[in-house]
Simulated scan of single mutants.
Amino acid sequence: MGTVLYIIVLVGLMYFMLIRPQQKRQKATQDMMASMAVGDTAVTIGGLHGVIAEIDEVKNTITLNCEGVFLIFDRRAIARTSKADPMDTAAVNDIISDAAEEQAHAEASLVEDTDTTHTGDQAEDDQK
């Protein structure tokens, strides 16, 4: 009776340690494959980065735009994807950051000019 219980515990442990995590990874991969759309960025299993230009459901292939070079891959060759940013938030953040840097630089130069002006005024007062 103890041996049967030991085998049942061992099978249950193997299920939760080996089989269940594999099923979760497989479901996540299937969800990623189903949610791919034109314009999303993708990375192949070989490490090639590109933007999805076309998805062919009949041939089960994906065409990636890699800086003007269009390459066709089997759908299973895509390791991961990330959704396209429709509002191009990264570019907007870069523009805002650049504008903030320019403003800080302009304010710093104004402070330097003001310091120089005060120093000149003090020198004139000292001469009088």
Rank of each mutant, 00 (worst) to 15 (best):
Y6I: 15
I7V: 09
V11N: 07
V11I: 14
G12V: 05
L13C: 12
M17Y: 05
M17G: 05
M17A: 12
I19F: 08
R20N: 09
R20H: 08
P21A: 03
P21L: 02
Q22N: 10
Q23H: 11
Q23K: 07
K24L: 14
R25N: 10
A28Q: 14
T29L: 13
T29D: 12
Q30K: 05
M33P: 02
M36P: 07
M36Q: 08
V38R: 03
A42W: 04
A42R: 03
T44V: 03
T44M: 00
I45S: 05
G46R: 09
G46N: 10
G47Q: 02
G47K: 07
L48H: 07
L48S: 11
H49A: 09
G50A: 07
E54D: 06
I55H: 01
I55K: 02
I55F: 01
E57I: 14
V58P: 02
N60D: 15
T61S: 00
T63D: 10
T63P: 03
L64D: 00
N65F: 04
C66G: 01
G68R: 01
G68P: 01
F70D: 12
D74F: 05
R75V: 09
R75K: 14
A79D: 08
A79L: 06
R80T: 10
T81K: 04
T81C: 06
T81H: 00
S82T: 15
D85V: 01
P86E: 02
P86G: 00
M87E: 14
M87L: 06
M87V: 09
D88L: 04
A91Y: 05
N93E: 15
N93P: 04
N93D: 10
D94F: 10
D94R: 13
D98N: 15
A99G: 07
A99S: 11
A100F: 04
A100K: 13
E101N: 13
H105A: 07
E107G: 06
S109A: 07
L110V: 02
V111T: 10
E112P: 08
T114W: 11
T116H: 09
T116D: 14
T116N: 13
T116E: 13
T117P: 04
T117C: 09
H118K: 11
T119A: 15
T119N: 15
T119P: 06
Q127S: 08
Q127H: 11
Q127C: 08
